[in-house]
C-alpha cells in the first residue's frame, strides 16, 4: 500500500465569486480506502466530481493512476468506477442489463459470458435473486448495492463511491462497509468514499480528509481514529465525537 493512486494538488473550486474550497492537497495510496468527509455544503461531492473528471477544478491538478483528470479524461475513465449518490441506475433496464451495459460497450465477451459476469457481480453485492428486477422495484439500499455492482462491472482499479450509506439502515450500511473492505482485500482496489456517516468512516477508512465550509478548505488529513482522539481542531473533534460546536 505504498504507490500513489490519486494525487490532488492544491485544488480549488469557485462558482463565480463564491469560493467553495481552496488549496486542497492530498494523495490516495493504491489499495487504500480513503474517505472524504465533512459537514453538508463543504464541497465533498464537488471534490468527487473533480476527481472523476466531471468538473474541472478552478485551480490545481488532480491525477488518477498518473493521468490528469482534465487533459487525459478518456484514459482516466477506463480506470475508474463510480457509484453516484442516487445510484443512477438506468430505469429502463433491469439490474442485470445495467451491469451488462458497460461489459457490452468495452469488451468483446460473448453474450453468455457477459451475463455470467454480471450475475456474479450482482451476487457479490447480495442481489443474485434480484437480477431481473427493474430499478423502480427495489429499495434504496438495493439500488446502492446494484450501483456498486455496476461500478465493478469492468473491475476498475479505482472506485469512487458518493454517500454509499446515506439513508440506509445500520445493517445494510454495515453490509456495504464489509463489502468495500472485502473488495479492497481481495482485489486490491483503491476506494475513495464520500460520506459523513461517522460509524462508516471509522469502520472502513484507512485515511481521510476533512473539508470544512467555514474554512473553505481542508482542516484535517489522517487516520480517523487518530483524528478522533488527537486533533486540536475544534470542528474535527466535534465531528468525530458527535458534539455540538
Amino acid at each position: 500500500m505504498s504507490e500513489v493512486a490519486i494525487t490532488v494538488d492544491h485544488v480549488a473550486q469557485r462558482f463565480g465569486s463564491t469560493e467553495i474550497f481552496h488549496d486542497v492537497t492530498f494523495d490516495v495510496k493504491t489499495g487504500e480506502v480513503f474517505v472524504v468527509l465533512g459537514g453538508s455544503g463543504c464541497g465533498k461531492s464537488t471534490l468527487l466530481k473533480q476527481m472523476i473528471g466531471l468538473r474541472a477544478p478552478s485551480a490545481g491538478h488532480i491525477s488518477v493512476l498518473g493521468h490528469d483528470v482534465v487533459r487525459e479524461r478518456a484514459n482516466v475513465r477506463q480506470t475508474i468506477g463510480v457509484m453516484f449518490q442516487s445510484g443512477a441506475l438506468f430505469g429502463s433496464m433491469n439490474l442485470l442489463d445495467n451491469i451488462i451495459l458497460p461489459l457490452s460497450i468495452f469488451t468483446d465477451l460473448p453474450a453468455a459470458a457477459r451475463a455470467e459476469i454480471a450475475r456474479v457481480k450482482l451476487a457479490l453485492v447480495g442481489l443474485a435473486d434480484a437480477a431481473y428486477k427493474m430499478p423502480a422495484e427495489i429499495s434504496g439500499g438495493m439500488a446502492k448495492r446494484a450501483a456498486i455492482a455496476r461500478a465493478l462491472a469492468l473491475d476498475p482499479p479505482v472506485l469512487f463511491l458518493d454517500e454509499p450509506s446515506a439513508g440506509l439502515d445500520p445493517i445494510t450500511s454495515a453490509g456495504l462497509d464489509r463489502l468495500i473492505l472485502n473488495l479492497r482485500d481481495t482485489l486490491g482496489s483503491t476506494f475513495v468514499v464520500v460520506t459523513h456517516e461517522l460509524q462508516s468512516i471509522l469502520a472502513i477508512a484507512d485515511r481521510c480528509v476533512m473539508l470544512d465550509r467555514a474554512a473553505r478548505g481542508m482542516i484535517a488529513l489522517g487516520v480517523p481514529k487518530e483524528l478522533q482522539t488527537q486533533s486540536q481542531d475544534a470542528t474535527v473533534r466535534a465531528f468525530f465525537n458527535r458534539e455540538p460546536l
Binding site: 450475475r119 456474479v120 451476487a123 457479490l124 447480495g126 443474485a128 435473486d129 434480484a130 437480477a131 431481473y132 472485502n182 482485500d185 481481495t186 482485489l187 486490491g188
Partner: peptide, 22 residues
C-alpha cells in the same frame, strides 16, 4: 491466496440456481 479468497467469496455469494428470466 488472494485469488483463492476471491473465489471463495464469490462461491459463497453466488447461489447454485440463478433466477430465471420472468
Amino acid at each position: 491466496d488472494n485469488a483463492l479468497k476471491l473465489l471463495d467469496t464469490l462461491r459463497h455469494s453466488t447461489p447454485e440456481t440463478l433466477p430465471q428470466k420472468p
